[in-house]
């Protein structure tokens, strides 16, 4: 039986200027899983995230953490924010200190840890994100990819159960992109629950355990990547593209060059494997 670590039920939220960001969202995040929220800009992903850790208070509806409805008092919010960390999209808005080491130490100190424990947490987070050599560098002289890793270390140092990443691969060059995706994999392997928002359908397809599609503040579809990305109507309504792997696979299948596999290829290697298999069948 899987456990739902975060749930929202019938969530409504309106901004001060009248924009209805969330219009009755119901969804659940499973513990230890990699969940991706897909949706165009303005679909409500970032707004939803700030409900997950109690920064925003819903107009209507409930947020539950480990089955318990979120209470908006200091003690509960403290516990919630210790356990649900958010890595913001733009590291320049998240990093407030000019010194990498001091920046990362902010979260652990807020948890009330001793100087010694906090220091250990910072060292560990820097090691995990591979930024130990940047410890004394000023934040404003870092590259974008480096800032991103500092932003991730900020949250890792607090050791939350759930880590939410708001478009973690946006604006990254291919090398930093690979590093960040590998880092996400590592973090998940430690048993942490990950929630990502992204426009990158290729990443969503090969990486996610479960995908939830948002549009204009509502959930318009959810399921495993295979289910989501073969549902053409859903992709059409949500304004999403098909991952190239699925597109190539469908073409090959359509032309009769490969036989239908039990499972869709989830990576380049798996697709090559399918192709290689065909070769041995037809030419041998």
């Amino acid at each position: 039986m899987t456990e739902k670590i975060l749930e929202v039920e019938d969530l409504y939220f309106k901004y001060e200027d009248g924009t209805e960001a969330l219009r009755g969202i119901t969804l659940a995040i499973e513990r230890g899983k990699k969940t991706i929220l897909l949706g165009a800009n303005g679909a409500g992903k970032s707004t939803l995230f700030l409900h997950f850790n109690g920064v925003y208070r819903p107009e209507r509806g409930v947020v539950r953490f480990q089955g318990e409805p979120v209470k908006y008092n200091n003690a509960f919010l403290k516990k919630l924010r210790k356990n649900v960390g958010i890595v913001f999209q733009d590291p320049d808005t998240q990093l407030f200190s000019a010194n990498v080491f001091q920046e990362i130490s902010f979260g652990p100190l807020n948890l009330g840890l001793s100087q010694e424990e906090a220091r250990q947490r910072v060292e560990q987070a820097m090691a995990e994100t591979g930024i130990t050599h940047l410890r004394d560098r000023p934040t404003h002289l870092l590259s974008y990819g480096e800032k991103k890793r500092v932003a991730i270390a900020d949250i890792l140092a607090m050791q939350p159960e759930v880590i939410i990443f708001d478009e973690p691969t946006a604006w990254l060059d291919p090398a930093s992109h690979r590093q960040v995706v590998a880092l996400l994999e590592d973090i998940n392997r430690q048993g942490r629950t990950l929630v990502l928002s992204t426009h990158d359908v290729d990443l969503a397809y090969s990486w996610a355990d479960y995908i939830i599609v948002l549009k204009e503040g509502r959930v318009v579809g959810e399921g495993t990547p295979e289910i989501i990305f073969r549902n053409d109507t859903l992709l059409e309504t949500a304004g999403l593209a098909k991952p190239w792997l699925v597109e190539v696979y469908d073409q090959l299948l359509h032309k009769g060059w490969i036989r239908e596999t039990e499972q869709l290829p989830r990576s380049k290697e798996e697709l090559f494997h399918v192709l290689g298999h065909r070769k041995t069948v037809s030419f041998a």
């Binding site: 920064v55 958010i86 808005t93 001091q102």
Partner: peptide
């Protein structure tokens, strides 16, 4: 706009009014 987002980012990391950091 940025100041709003920065404030949310601080809140998300348990900010309660003091910007405490470890000293080098």
């Amino acid at each position: 706009w940025r100041s709003q987002v920065s404030f949310h980012a601080l809140l998300s990391r348990g900010y309660t009014g003091r910007l405490e950091v470890l000293e080098s």
